[in-house]
Design a protein around this nucleic acid. Sequence first.
DNA 1: CGGAATCCTAAGCGATACTG
DNA 2: CAGTATCGCTTAGGATTCCG
Lengths: 108, 108
Amino acid sequence: MENKNAKKSEHKCSLKDVLDIIGGKWAMPIIYILSKGKMRFKELERSIEGINTRMLVKELKNMEANGILTREIFATVPPTVEYTLTEKGKKLLPSIESLYKWGQEFIA
Amino acid sequence: MENKNAKKSEHKCSLKDVLDIIGGKWAMPIIYILSKGKMRFKELERSIEGINTRMLVKELKNMEANGILTREIFATVPPTVEYTLTEKGKKLLPSIESLYKWGQEFIA
DNA sequence: CGGAATCCTAAGCGATACTG
DNA sequence: CAGTATCGCTTAGGATTCCG
């Protein structure tokens, strides 16, 4: 069982619960990239420096399971799959952009 | 060398760089707790559910090295040590609170 | 192209006991 | 009280290969 339980249904939702979802190494970078609009798998892989196939797949699945993004498949040859932020996902953007700006300001 | 390098001086500061500093399991929860004011080590340990001595020490050191909080020692018996957010650290609060609120809204 | 399946390792993390 | 010092995981994360 490599996959993360899509939130084990308690009703507390602390900061820790949020971080369980988007606290991984790649989640926020992915969301940040996707804020510019829908993207294909390969585009994402190229846009996010340092990530590899396995981690990208894994994070995308997690975020899909958590309703942060959607996955659309097009039966083309070769196959096309597009990822898009949901409204829920988009509402994470202010936080993430804010973190990013903090970095710009405080990390030389 | 268990400690994290207090930022290896490049000049790019991406989101990843921010997460290198506060992306760990406990950093944001600690900052969040400290937003209420300075606290002693033991208070922190009690306030943050699930953390243990080792991880608390480790994160506090990291954050101190990154200028997010300060550590004040008082030569009392028994010893007293207080941790306080720096201005730099406080500027992370909006992001963190925003993440927290997102959790309140979207994680049942 | 978009993954799935393997294999593997570093390090993040946890529990506990001990010390000034 | 405020930490160190060990020890031992587990698992997140990485590299690579293969498949429809």
